[in-house]
Design a protein around this nucleic acid. Structure first.
Lengths: 238, 238
DNA sequence: GAGTGGTCTAGACCACTAT
DNA sequence: TAGTGGTCTAGACCACTCT
């Protein structure tokens, strides 16, 4: 683990454990330099991370302070910021997230998929449709496309567990970033049936394109979320 | 303007103007150092910004590349990343964003508002309800609360224009960050009337708390968005 | 092995806040 | 005016990719 990450992690813990409480002032950067035997830039970087997670506020001329939120909210921010690029599995720690695979097939990439994944020629892609459940209750319906030449040997069994784990742990590929668009509309008949909601009931539609560290998009997915459990939290800085 | 911002801005332009095209490799960091007479760290910082906007991809050992997206998408990313903390006004450049003020009053802060704005005692807050229109068509209904002791002398006229402009330009306060939660539900009767949609039509509900550079929350708002024009885009890194 | 970007440092100097 | 965090530098060393 990198030094600035370790420092951020340590401060994060001290905030959740109450060593530093909401509205408390953190030690001065000059003091943090001594505490962690790090340079000014490294300390700044660690603090920048915590700031982008919404945990602290820096005031030039005054000091650095824990954001004045309920501990509950601070906890939520931490859990949330760690799960940005991963499945829902981490957000719902303590709950069982499972999947029912409805479709697992290989097709030639449809037009929208070709565009999103920047495929110029006819290309075979997995088409995977899954219902995701939280403690047995369905909360989302996901349709996902991945080129087979990028993600070889994917099996139905992986889709039942975590596709991302397979990509990271078995293929040793790094997921670097994602573009996400959230929209709203009424549920269609399949969605209402799978998510146990009235037809035309409001749903959140999340369209995502995931990129590998190489910059290549490898996954295009459209996920429909049942309204009751859907909540997308973000912290905006600057 | 800071050096790393100027460098980022210059590269951003070169990307939109096509000097560097999608999938092109940018000059090496060592070359950028010479071009901009800047140190490695400063170049890195500029590139980090562009990366967090989703415009470029860095590959250790290989180089830095423009993300392989349609120019159209790159443009969208740029416009979007600049408008994170501002009103919708900038996203819809070229279109007229106007407001109709439905309520402009001062009330004692309701419970939820007291919680979100961390008010311990009875406190007077503005309660402002606005319909926002794009080229004359309503797209959102916003209810906004701000303590009068933080934002003095706010007038109905400011709410008809831009409240944030008043805060920044007249009060000289800096808006530093915001926490945002997006949810989905059916429209109530007021929303359906104001937004010209069927009752129970799906709407996006965006709940936001804005913070000043001092770390103090000064604005709590709940905005209901008509589904057709609502699209919230995000880039997730790391 | 040659070449890429990443981390970290020590220190100069700047911008802002408080008193 | 003293003290805070911010920017920027020059350079050492590290991690990764490609051949």
């Amino acid at each position: 683990m990198l030094k600035y990450q370790a420092i951020a992690e340590d401060l994060r813990q001290k905030i959740t454990q109450g060593t530093y409480q909401p509205d408390d002032q953190l030690p001065l950067t000059s003091e943090l330099e001594k505490i962690y035997h790090a340079s000014k830039m490294t300390i700044k970087r660690a603090l920048d991370h915590l700031e982008s997670e919404g945990l602290i506020v820096k005031r030039r001329g005054s000091g650095t302070f824990v954001k004045g939120l309920a501990m509950n909210d601070l906890d939520k921010l931490i859990r949330h910021s760690r799960s940005q690029l991963f499945g829902m599995s981490k957000v719902y720690a303590g709950h069982a997230v499972t999947s029912k695979v409805r479709v697992f097939e290989i097709v030639t990439a449809p037009k929208e998929v070709k565009t999103q994944l920047r495929l110029n020629h006819e290309t075979f892609v997995y088409r995977i449709v899954r219902v995701r459940l939280l403690d047995g209750t369905p909360f989302s319906l996901e349709t996902s496309y991945m080129p087979i030449f990028l993600i070889p040997n994917l099996r139905r069994q992986h889709a039942e567990q975590s596709i991302f784990s397979y990509i990271r742990d078995s293929l040793h590929l790094k997921i670097q970033s994602a573009h996400r668009i959230v929209r709203v509309r009424g549920a269609n008949s399949q969605e209402s049936a799978e998510l146990h909601i009235a037809s035309d009931s409001p749903v959140a539609v999340v369209q995502e394109t995931y990129f590998l560290a190489s910059g290549i998009p490898f996954n295009y997915s459209v996920t429909t979320h049942e309204p009751k459990h859907f909540a997308l939290e973000t912290v905006i800085i600057d």
